[in-house]
Design a protein around this nucleic acid. Structure first.
Lengths: 248, 248
DNA sequence: CGAAGACTTGACGGCGGTCAACATTGGTGG
DNA sequence: CCACCAATGTTGACCGCCGTCAAGTCTTCG
């Protein structure tokens, strides 16, 4: 760890600012002690580093405490498809509850702090309580819905709508974490991340962002986005219908 | 029911030809009696009719016993995105185990026969047995993986590869049901179904199929596809990597 | 037999990919 | 604090894949 880098390390789970959003939110509050006892440590990952490589054996369940990450696969041709972006509180991944490997890789988008749990322990802990099983189920369903929305965007919307939609989706997820202030929120994604999530090229993503800025829909500065015209931004999003709030 | 239409109705679950593929496959064999007792009836749906409409209250879990169906959503603009095709043995849908509505519609692609179960009963039955919960979990994971593959195709492959991939995926799923003979299998999808699944237009799907036939990769006749060159077909598929067998 | 649905064809054009050169940013080490 | 290098973003030219439209044929099924 180099000087000049400050990681905000997690304390007791009961004080976790994102605990309402996690896999464990269904646990009775008194139980956050129990969750804390299950925690097997934390892990810090620098931006642009790999958190997990597709197919590797995985004996842990990781929860993102701080920072951004993303899930993806790389095709033989070298192109990349990003499936989702992970925000604080997101579990990476639920799949680990039933399998000791995941079918995709995960990279840190910014500097990250992860909470670690033992796969078997969490698995049997979740199975011990019907409420937790249901909660896990619902998270899984939410992922499905998010994937459907994502597929629909990519399959049936023009580049302009895809980008606007992605920005709004992230705005919503950040809003539920209280991370939107004065219509502004952090947006550390590079053009290539947006491109690889939406089935575009980074060059074209640049063109679309310019269009969005010239149309005064939004404004980017210092890795932040300020939404200038929520109305028009939402309007684009409406093209794709709505079926639930997707992943939190 | 008009004359001239013969529906193959299901008998006892123990004799169900697709029982190994269902949500209930983890139940001990002796238990197929129990499943049979849970069955609340069957339902027949003609080709092109709606099985379920997005958002409607749903008190049943349905399993496809015979025929083909597909899940989709229609956007405000009128375009359609198809998420998946259902084959015999597929459950429609797992989501009903935790929610009384689904975020997508389902249509019959061919004439269909469905087995009906009560949502609450199945739900508590599944929850009563850890093996069944795990099985349901895994099915959910498989869906996730299939969606990821699907998204990757649409986001990162050219039209030719997308179509070839879809055909091969269906071939594989049919093969695991013993429905592939002499390199031939049923393929009731219309060009517009393929188009709406893959983010293309039905016109262009026509062009791609012509290309596949002229390149002697496959051959279509009587709603059947015969694969002439598995090698080249697989090769295209390989572009997208492989991570598990997707949905069965 | 009639009508609705499905498929084909051809012309045309635009969205977005590709390539390459250049500008800018930001992290790192001297 | 500055210099450097990698990562990132920008621009412009070009073009091809695939969407659009519309007319015509064929298939399916009541």
């Amino acid at each position: 760890m180099k000087a000049g880098h400050h990681f905000d390390l997690p304390g007791h789970c009961a004080d976790c600012p994102v605990r309402e959003l996690t896999l464990y939110s269904a646990a009775r509050f008194a139980n956050s002690d129990e969750i804390y006892r299950l925690r097997r440590g934390t892990r810090q990952v620098r931006a642009r580093q790999k958190i997990y490589i597709e197919g590797r054996e995985l004996q842990q369940v990781m929860t993102l405490y701080n920072g951004w990450a993303f899930c993806y696969r790389v095709l033989p041709g070298g192109t990349r498809q990003i499936f989702s972006f992970l925000l604080p509180g997101d579990t990476m991944s639920l799949g680990a509850l039933v399998s000791n490997q995941l079918p995709y890789s995960v990279d840190a988008l910014t500097d990250c702090v992860l909470c670690l749990f033992d796969r078997q322990e969490i698995s049997s802990y979740v199975e011990s309580d019907v409420a937790l099983v249901r909660n896990a189920w619902q998270q899984c369903q939410h992922h499905q819905i998010a994937m459907q929305q994502h597929l629909t965007q990519v399959g049936r919307c023009a580049a302009y709508e895809r980008v606007a939609f992605l920005v709004m989706e992230i705005a919503d997820r950040l809003a539920s974490r209280g991370m939107v202030q004065d219509n502004s929120f952090p947006f550390p994604l590079r053009h290539s991340h947006v491109a690889d999530a939406l089935g575009l090229t980074h060059v074209h993503v640049g063109r679309v962002f310019r269009e969005l800025e010239q149309g005064e829909v939004l404004c980017r500065r210092d890795r932040m986005i300020e939404v200038l015209d929520w109305g028009r931004a939402r309007e684009v999003q409406a093209q794709s219908g709505s079926a639930g709030s997707a992943v939190m």
